[in-house]
Each structure stands twice: as structure tokens, then as C-alpha cells.
Design a protein around this nucleic acid. Structure first.
Length: 595
RNA sequence: GGUCCCGUAGCUCAGCUGGAUAGAGCAACAGCCUUCUAAGCUGUGGGUCGAAGGUUCGAAUCCUUCCGGGAUCGCCA
């Protein structure tokens, strides 16, 4: 039982004895005492006044006195206005530290009701390389999966690859026109970048054709539809859906190039999947579902053979499900994928990690599945994260303002290398170790920067100002870990956990602060789970590292003359390093033993 | 126009299931390395929490209106 629960139970009992009124446990409001006041935990008495029928100060004083008498751990109390500040006995926090030391690994309090989660994230298109937006998506997806696993749930990490559709046809047209049989092998280019270049080329040619058409008197709208290169792309899409051999062959080959590129990026980023879905496999099932819906009269068709669903009764609009030429759209294939996910894993919660610009899409997806009578519609949850914007606004591939994922990771590593070279680090290091370290540190800076912000919020990335390596950053937390590791190594004690010593001293304030912070690590994980928000972890572990650094600065550890104090400090250091490693791993960040 | 999201220090963000004098980092300035790793520590300045009402013992937090920014309402995904 945690201290909150314990105090609530004792408070209810004490209140009844004092004021002869039985209150509910959840009416007892307990929070951590703010830093400016004495005490560890604060009981807010305002909500209890109508039952005590006494003034705030009087109520708080009576309750405090009673708690001090009856509670094993309430050592003292102080009343300020309507706030009853309780001082908890040191032994309580120390016991918690001991319990952390008992196990080899960090023991997380698991959720009493474990569920099966299917987490879809990443979901790239196969026509261009990954960019900064995908990085946020991947990091959130990976971390949320780790958090849910830590809390005892079953998790299936799924990737849905948008490998078909008009976008990939555009790259194909670009390559057919200008590729001259080149491949990533012959050019030495990473496969996803190679294909992406032809997508860009397509867009350039398309624009030229439109300009020409407009010059010849077409309206802009007409030009958009009738540019020959666009018609070509549409023709390829149709051929593709008809299983045309040659089209399929080129498509397969170009996609395989992209996958090889993605694989490298994923591996470097440290993300992985248990299951990969391809839209080329799911869109037919989607079409089937649409036809069923049409037969049941849930959907309707137009003269041009297109199929629609009318969502006006639900306050939305009509939505296209099948194009006039019989090809499927985004929604069609998502219907199929949703069905397949359910058939494969029957998850309690099917989470989609997708940007908030697609909120409408998921609203519609759920509605349509409900109309089709699918029970799993309610299990679908869109984890809608905020876009990563540049200072000027949205990233736009056409304006070349997209921040490429591979480039960005390279830059972060280089910045770390520059930093280490300029700072004249005292730690002597082989060149190869230095490079490996900077990879880890650079990625940590990037990942922490992205994950420390609330997932729901839009965030701004300024490419001009490189991401910091000092202060509220990943490297700061890593550095704390490396420092502790260094101390533990120098202590020459093989197992710090097993040290036995007497508690014959008073704790310093900073030691007390650290100890209390350690106590709350489970709250951070539980909150991260509840909100599906890794930033809770990033902020907790930063605060812990910050406290530790002050402790490290202010107090001697190895040089402490009292063996008892020294052992205590070593053990606390050890636990802090364990927590840092654990939390950082939940965030998908590695920690170096020295830096 | 309809729906939804966001406005907290110069910048990037915490705090938001209502609680005490609103916190960090960066940037600026001033200190601390013969002492366990200075990617660290300490200090200074910097705020009408977008605005106005309302609910409440108490509002950055909840409600309403307004202002400002963004997303979406595609036969793109």
C-alpha cells in the first residue's frame, strides 16, 4: 500500500473519532507538500469543513494531532491556513529504498487489469523517406508500447505500410520516365531516398505540364486533372489493381528498395514491430466490407458506380468509399486493416498512433465500422499527437522544408562529436568509442527533445538552432548515469546492493529530497500509461537527475569518512542509476557507462 | 462558414481530474574545476498565465463570450 492510501484510511478513521462523521476515502485530498513549506505530504482540509463544523485551522490541528497519535508514520504536523502538512518518518522512505534494493531489476507496479493492446505506429508511405514527423510518431509508438508492457499489458506493435495507391504510382512514373534503369545499387543511394527523388521528380514534371496546359487556355482545375503525367499515374494504379504483371513487377522492386532503406532507419532509431501489415494485402478485404455494406443497404452507389456512405445523420458529410473506376481509397483499406487486426489479435484496445490532422478520418472510420455492426469499433482509439512544425509553420515537402530523418540523426551525431572535441573532455577515449558514444548521445538529445513534450501538443523544431546537449536534455540525464557509474566502479565494491550498515545519522535535506523523489517513480509510470504520454517519464527522470546532481555536488560519497553514510549514499546512487537506465529505456534511449 | 485543438518568461516547454508566493531549460549577466566526470553546481534579472466576465473558501486549471494562431471538413494518405 502506498503512503497516500495509508493516510486516507487513517484519516477517515481519525475524522470519524474526532467529528463523528464517516467520510469516504476519496474525499481525503492528499498531495505532495509544495517545496516552500515544511512537511512531506499535505492534507487539504477545506472540503472537510462542512463535516467537521470547525474552522480550517482548528480542523487541521485536531486531525493532525490525532494522526500523529495513531499513525505509525506521521511523525509531526504543521498547520498553515487550511493545509495540514504532515511530516512522514524517515524510516518510511528508507524502507522503500530497501525494497528497491532487494531486486535485480526495477519492479514496476503493474496494472491490476492487464489488457491486450495493438499499437499501430510509424505507418509510412513507400514513396518517400521518413522525416521528422515520422520520428515523433515512431518514438511515441515505441515508448507507449514499452510503457504498456512495463505495466503488465500484452502489446502487439504493428506497422501498416501504405505500399499502394496513387502516391507510389507517381514515383513509379517518375522512375519509368527518367530512371534509365538505375537502382540504389548502381547509384549507391539509400533505397528510400532513391525512390523519393523520383516522387519529387514526378511533382516537378506535373507542375510543368500544368503550367503548359494553363498557358494553352485550360483552367487550373482542368489542368490538374488532365495533365498527361497524372493520367499516366492513374492508369498505373488501375493496372496495378488489375494485377498487371509488369506493373506489379516494377512496384515490387521499387518497394523493396524502400524497405531496405526504412529498415536501416528503424534500426538506427531503435524501433521494431511484431507485425507488419501491407495495404496491398488489406485493401481487398476493405472492398469486400464495402460491398457487404452496399448489399445491406448501409451504403449507396451513384450513377458513376462510386460507392458512398451517408454520415449526415451523424452530423458529418457523405464520404466516398470506392472510386468510380472501382479503385479503393484510404478509408477502404483502413476498413480492411481494422477487420484484419481484429481477426488476427482480437485486441481489447486497438491504438492508432497518427497525427491530429487525421482526427476526422478516425471519427469516420469508427462510425462506418459501427454501421457495419462491428463490435470492435469501440476498441479503436486514435492516439492523436501534435504535429512537428517549423518556426515558419508546417513542413512542406513541395517547398523542400521537410527535415529528413536520416539527415537529422547524422547531424545530431556530428553535433555531439563537435561538442566532445571542443570541450577537451578529460575522459580519455579511443576514437571508435567516441564515435559510438556520440551516436548514443546524439540520438538521446533528439529523442528526449521530442518525447519531453506532451504528445497531444504541437511542437516547434527550429533547424537553425541545434538541439541542446545541456540542461533539460537527454545527454544531461545520460551524464548523470555516467557519473554514478564512475563512482560505483571506483568504489571497488562488487555489490552495492548487499552493503549492510547502521543508520546512526541524520539525513541531509538533499538526501531526503532525493529519497522522496525515488518513492514516486511508480506514479510517473502509471501517469504515463493513463495518458499514453511518455513525456511524463522524461520529466520525472529529468527531475530525479537534477536532484542527484545537486546531491553529487554538495555531498561527498566515496570521500565520506563515515562508512555508514558512505554506504547509504552509494546505495542511493545505485538506485538512481538503475531508475535512469530503466526510464531512459522506456523512452527508447540508451545510457552510456561513461561519457 | 461548421467541427476540433492551442495561447504560461525573449525562445522551447512543465504545471491543467481546482489548492499555498506560477516552475524548469535555453539565451543574458555574475560566481564555482590542485577535491568522487564542469554535458555539472550556485546566484541575478525576466510573468496583468491571450482578454473580459462567471462558478468557488480558493481559478493558469472549470464554464461563457471575445481576440489571436493552427488543423480539418479531398475521388491525397
Amino acid at each position: 500500500m502506498d503512503i497516500y492510501q495509508l493516510l486516507r484510511i487513517e484519516s477517515v478513521k481519525a475524522f470519524d473519532e474526532l467529528f463523528h462523521h464517516q467520510i469516504e476515502e476519496d474525499q481525503i485530498q492528499i498531495e505532495q507538500t509544495s517545496a516552500d513549506h515544511e512537511g512531506d505530504l499535505t492534507l487539504v482540509v477545506f472540503p472537510l469543513l462542512r463535516f467537521s463544523r470547525k474552522s480550517p485551522v482548528e480542523t487541521a490541528n485536531l486531525l493532525g494531532k490525532k494522526l500523529q497519535e495513531v499513525s505509525e508514520f506521521v511523525e509531526n504536523y504543521k498547520v498553515i491556513k487550511g493545509f495540514l502538512n504532515l511530516q512522514i518518518a524517515q524510516i518510511y522512505w528508507l524502507n522503500h529504498l530497501s525494497s528497491l534494493l532487494k531486486h535485480d531489476n526495477i519492479q514496476v507496479k503493474t496494472n491490476p487489469k492487464p489488457l491486450t493492446y495493438l499499437i499501430e505506429y510509424s505507418s509510412p508511405n513507400t514513396n518517400k523517406p521518413l522525416h521528422l514527423g515520422h520520428i515523433r510518431n515512431n518514438l511515441i509508438g515505441h515508448s507507449v508500447s514499452e510503457i504498456l508492457l512495463a505495466r503488465g499489458h500484452e502489446v502487439i506493435k504493428a506497422n501498416l505500410i501504405n505500399d499502394r495507391g496513387i502516391h507510389i504510382c507517381k514515383s513509379m512514373v517518375g522512375w519509368l520516365k527518367a530512371g534509365q534503369g538505375k537502382t540504389p545499387e548502381t547509384t549507391g543511394q539509400k533505397g528510400d531516398h532513391f525512390v523519393g527523388d523520383y516522387y519529387v521528380l514526378f511533382d516537378q514534371l506535373y507542375k510543368k505540364e500544368m503550367e503548359q496546359l494553363i498557358k494553352n487556355g485550360s483552367s487550373a482545375e482542368d489542368a490538374e486533372k488532365k495533365a498527361p503525367i497524372m493520367l499516366e499515374a492513374q492508369q498505373i494504379l488501375k493496372l496495378w489493381e488489375k494485377n498487371d504483371d509488369e506493373t506489379r513487377r516494377i512496384w515490387t522492386e521499387m518497394n523493396s528498395w524502400v524497405y531496405q532503406g526504412f529498415e536501416k532507419t528503424y534500426r538506427r532509431m531503435g524501433v521494431s514491430f511484431d507485425k507488419v501489415y501491407y495495404e496491398s494485402d488489406t485493401y481487398l478485404l476493405g472492398k469486400k466490407l464495402v460491398k457487404e455494406g452496399l448489399e445491406k443497404g448501409l451504403f449507396f452507389s451513384r450513377e458513376d458506380q462510386s460507392i458512398w456512405v451517408d454520415l449526415q445523420p451523424d452530423g458529418l458529410d457523405e464520404k466516398l468509399l470506392i472510386r468510380p473506376d472501382g479503385t479503393s481509397v484510404y478509408m477502404t483499406q483502413d476498413l480492411g486493416t481494422a477487420q484484419l487486426k481484429h481477426d488476427d489479435f482480437c485486441p481489447d484496445q486497438s491504438i492508432y498512433i497518427v497525427g491530429n490532422e487525421q482526427e476526422y478520418h478516425f471519427k469516420v472510420l469508427r462510425l462506418i465500422l459501427k454501421k457495419l455492426g462491428k463490435s470492435y469499433a469501440d476498441a479503436i482509439k486514435h492516439l492523436s499527437y501534435g504535429m512537428v512544425d517549423l518556426p515558419e509553420g508546417k513542413m512542406k515537402s513541395r517547398e523542400g522544408t521537410v527535415v529528413d530523418a536520416d539527415d537529422l540523426m547524422d547531424e545530431m551525431k556530428q553535433t555531439a562529436l563537435d561538442y566532445i572535441n571542443e570541450s577537451g573532455k578529460s575522459t580519455p577515449m579511443e576514437e571508435s568509442e567516441k564515435v559510438a558514444l556520440c551516436e548514443i548521445v546524439g540520438l538521446a538529445a533528439l529523442k528526449f527533445f521530442i518525447l519531453k513534450t506532451d504528445v497531444k501538443k504541437r511542437m516547434v523544431f527550429n533547424p537553425e538552432e541545434s538541439i541542446d546537449f545541456q540542461g533539460h536534455t537527454g545527454p544531461f540525464v545520460q551524464y548523470t548515469f555516467a557519473r554514478i557509474n564512475s563512482i560505483l566502479e571506483k568504489s571497488k565494491i562488487s555489490n552495492v546492493r548487499e552493503l549492510i550498515f547502521d543508520f546512526d545519522f541524520e539525513l541531509e535535506i538533499i538526501e531526503m529530497d532525493l529519497l522522496k523523489k525515488l518513492y514516486y517513480f511508480n506514479d510517473a509510470i502509471a501517469e504515463a500509461e493513463r495518458e499514453m504520454d511518455p513525456s511524463q517519464l522524461a520529466n520525472y527522470i529529468y527531475q530525479l537527475a537534477k536532484l542527484y546532481n545537486r546531491f553529487y555536488h554538495d555531498l561527498p560519497i566515496l570521500k565520506e569518512v563515515s562508512a555508514n553514510k558512505k554506504y547509504f549514499r552509494l546505495q542511493m546512487s545505485f538506485v538512481v542509476s538503475r531508475l535512469i537506465e530503466y526510464f531512459m529505456n522506456l523512452l527508447g534511449i540508451q545510457v552510456p557507462k561513461r561519457m
